[in-house]
Amino acid sequence: MLRYALIFLVVALIAGALGFGGIAGAASGIATILFYIFIVLFVVGLIMHLVNGRRVL
């Protein structure tokens, strides 16, 4: 998911540099949404790992 967020970010940067404002805005919005979803899933996964994780020692 983070990969898709980075791809849309690159598309937005390239489109913005070439002057395609509408496409850049849409790609930037999609990248932002995917990034936040990734962060939420990462935090949930981290919490689940800490709660259910096995102790080494």
Results as ranks from 00 to 15, higher is better:
Leu34Gln: 04
Ile14Leu: 12
Thr32Leu: 05
Ala15His: 04
Val40Gly: 10
Gly53Asp: 14
Phe38Arg: 05
Ala15Cys: 10
Gly53Thr: 07
Ala31Gly: 09
Gly16Ile: 03
Asn52Ser: 09
Leu6Asp: 04
His49Cys: 03
Ile23Thr: 11
Leu57Trp: 01
Leu9Ala: 04
Phe38Gly: 12
Leu57Gly: 11
Arg55Asp: 15
Ala31Asn: 02
Phe42Cys: 06
Phe38Asn: 09
Leu13Glu: 01
Ile14Trp: 02
Ala15Ser: 09
Ile33Asn: 04
Phe42Ala: 07
Met48Gln: 14
Ile14Ala: 11
Val40Tyr: 07
Ala31Pro: 01
Gly16Leu: 03
Leu9Asn: 01
Arg3Tyr: 02
Tyr4Lys: 00
Phe8Val: 00
Tyr4Gly: 00
Gly53Ser: 10
Gly53Ala: 15
Ile23Lys: 15
Ala31Ile: 13
Phe42Met: 04
Ile14Gly: 07
Ala12Thr: 00
Ala5His: 01
Leu18Ile: 15
Arg3Thr: 10
Gly53Val: 11
Val40Lys: 12
Ala5Val: 00
Met48Thr: 09
Leu57Glu: 15
Val44Trp: 13
Phe38Glu: 08
Ala15Asp: 06
Ile14Ser: 11
Val10Tyr: 01
Leu41Arg: 13
Ile30Asn: 01
Gly45Met: 06
Gly29Ala: 10
Gly29Glu: 05
Gly53Gln: 14
Val43Thr: 09
Ile23Phe: 15
Val43Leu: 13
Leu41Pro: 00
Val51Lys: 08
Ile14Met: 12
Gly53Glu: 14
Ser28Tyr: 11
Leu50Gln: 08
Val11Asn: 01
Arg54Thr: 07
Gly29Val: 08
Phe42Ile: 03
Gly29Gln: 05
Phe42Leu: 11
Leu6Ile: 02
Ile39Tyr: 15
Tyr36Ser: 09
Phe20Asn: 10
Asn52Trp: 05
Ile39Gly: 10
Gly25Met: 05
Met1Ile: 06
Met48Gly: 09
Val40Cys: 12
Tyr4Trp: 01
Ile7Val: 02
Ala17Asp: 03
Ile47Asp: 02
Ala24Asp: 15
Phe42Pro: 07
Gly53Phe: 13
Ile14His: 03
Met1Cys: 02
Val43Phe: 09
Thr32Trp: 02
Leu57Val: 11
Thr32Gln: 07
Ala31Asp: 02
Ala26Phe: 15
Leu13Pro: 00
Ile37His: 04
Arg55Pro: 13
Leu50Lys: 12
Arg55Val: 09
Gly16Ser: 04
Val56Thr: 08
Gly53Asn: 04
Phe20Gln: 13
Leu57Thr: 12
Met1Asn: 00
Ile39Phe: 15
Leu2Phe: 06
Ile30Cys: 01
Val10Phe: 01
Ala5Lys: 00
Phe20Ala: 11
